[in-house]
């Protein structure tokens, strides 16, 4: 059976909405979204084995955090922010910021954007130590992924005004610290 068709059938049952709220079938979610999360994690952790381990951690985190899923969001959006947040936290925990941080830009599913990648890596390596978890997530989605304020607001679940403020604040920090960002 073509995978896309099988996936569609399973996805329709990934979420069951009951009177008490959405209940997520994590097992089905894993079958349908593990590839997507693997791709996302490889952006931060280029080593295949390490990335697979992180994917597992993300889904374990999804099990713990399923109460945070908003019924009007898509599973991909929810997992995307969960995975990004987890990768950033892991980078922090491992204190890799002390090493040369290099985002994996050479991935076939990423549209080439060398200038942005270079800037993003530089920003991330400096901001990772200065911002709180939410601000770091917002800045990553903005500088690394190039998302619009509107899309970030949808992914993170805060207002566009908050997104703008957080990004402005990050820019100010960067100017103050190194005068790198205009």
């Amino acid at each position: 059976m073509p995978r896309s068709d099988a996936r569609s059938g399973r996805l329709a049952r990934v979420l069951t909405f009951r009177r008490r709220g959405p209940v997520i079938d994590i097992d089905a979610l894993y079958r349908s979204h593990a590839g997507m999360i693997f791709r996302r994690v490889l952006r931060f952790f280029p080593d295949d084995a390490e990335a697979e381990e992180v994917v597992h951690e993300v889904f374990m985190r999804a099990m713990e955090k399923q109460h945070t899923f908003r019924g009007d969001a898509s599973p991909s959006t929810w997992l995307y922010q969960l995975a990004t947040r987890h990768c950033l936290n892991r980078l922090r925990d491992l204190r890799r910021r002390r090493e040369t941080l290099a985002l994996n830009a050479d991935l076939p599913w990423l549209r080439p954007s060398a200038a942005r990648d270079q800037e993003a890596t530089m920003l991330l390596s400096q901001l990772i130590d200065q911002l709180d978890e939410e601000a770091l997530l917002i800045c990553t989605l903005y500088f690394v992924d190039g998302m619009s304020h509107a899309e970030i607001a949808r992914v993170v679940g805060v207002s566009r005004r908050t997104i703008g403020n957080r990004i402005d604040d990050a820019r100010h920090r960067m100017r103050a610290a190194a005068g790198v960002v205009g």
Partner: peptide, 8 residues
């Protein structure tokens, strides 16, 4: 399209 859009 963003990486997330492609995923969706």
């Amino acid at each position: 399209p963003t990486e997330l859009t492609i995923a969706r």
